[in-house]
């Protein structure tokens, strides 16, 4: 009988684990919606920004903004890495880090220095152990990331780029495709890839208040911020989706384990009862 008691204890513990994973799964399922809504809500801004910048680029400025000019020589590249703050989300972060490490190595073999800017605690923990420069980080963005939380890190990289401490800037995050799939995405952020905006054939120029250069700088900064913000939201939605799937499979595994344990338990119980009966019968036979 001692065996069966142990099994009961084990079943209890697995049941408790399953309770936790179930709860996490359901919490994530509801948070995906919210994250998706935020993604949608922030889209108009990015779209409008892109339009205006498209117009500005077409308005033929005499000296193009440094953000739009390709540098001949790339000696230092920057990466903005967006990862999650919390774990338990399957291979989401690890897939991204693996891909990044490959890219970093490729750059380093060419003699290019790599600097990272990190959003999210998991990435900070990971890159701290590596020989990679980290110029700025921000963590604990929570369920509702605010643009405010990102302004600092973005300013750091943009200043680096302006002052030519960086020649190129990439953005890395998990793109949310649907609940079942998220894709590691690395995009070039700066210099801005030329936009192929159509429907801008007619040329007009704006009145600028103040000068065009100053305004363009403001627009580009805001634009980069909105792109990074959007990526953060995508990553958040991906995080919840990945966690939901991971937790669902964990719950399923727990259920299987419980079934198996229960089978073992029943067998042990049955064996004990059978033994008891045969002992009684044996005893009765001996008495009579």
């Amino acid at each position: 009988m001692s065996g069966s008691k142990e099994i009961v204890g084990k079943i209890k513990s697995v049941q408790n684990t399953r309770k936790v994973t179930r709860a996490l799964e359901m919490v994530s399922a509801s948070k995906i919606r919210k994250a998706q809504d935020m993604m949608l809500a922030s889209r108009p801004y990015a779209r409008m920004m892109r339009q205006v910048i498209g117009h500005l680029a077409h308005a033929n400025l005499e000296n193009p903004h440094p953000f739009t000019v390709d540098r001949d020589e790339v000696k230092r590249v920057g990466y903005i890495v967006i990862a999650t703050d919390r774990g338990l989300c399957g291979g989401l972060n690890n897939n991204m880090f693996r891909q990044l490490l490959g890219e970093f190595r490729a750059w380093q073999e060419q003699g290019v220095e790599v600097t990272t800017v990190i959003i999210g605690r998991k990435a900070a923990q990971f890159f701290r152990r590596l020989k990679v420069n980290i110029s700025a980080t921000t963590q604990d963005l929570g369920e509702r990331p605010r643009l405010e939380d990102l302004i600092g890190v973005i300013k750091v990289v943009l200043d680096d780029f302006r002052e030519e401490r960086l020649d190129r800037l990439h953005l890395c995050y998990n793109r949310f495709i649907n609940t079942m799939s998220q894709k590691v995405t690395v995009e070039q952020l700066l210099p801005l890839p030329p936009s192929e905006d159509e429907g801008l054939k007619q040329y007009w120029d704006y009145l600028y208040e103040p000068a065009a250069e100053e305004l363009l700088d403001d627009f580009l900064t805001r634009y980069i911020e909105s792109v990074v913000y959007q990526a953060t939201l995508e990553n958040l939605a991906s995080e919840h989706a990945a966690r939901m799937v991971a937790m669902k499979s964990a719950s399923d595994n727990a259920s299987n384990l419980i079934d198996d344990l229960r089978l073992v338990y029943n067998k042990a119980r049955q064996a004990a009862i059978t033994q008891e009966i045969s002992e009684i019968v044996g005893g009765a036979a001996a008495v009579s």
């Binding site: 700025a136 980080t137 302004i151 890190v153």
Partner: peptide, 10 residues
């Protein structure tokens, strides 16, 4: 200040 904070955190 935000930029400084981010650097400090790094």
């Amino acid at each position: 200040a935000a930029a400084l904070k981010a650097k400090e955190e790094a």
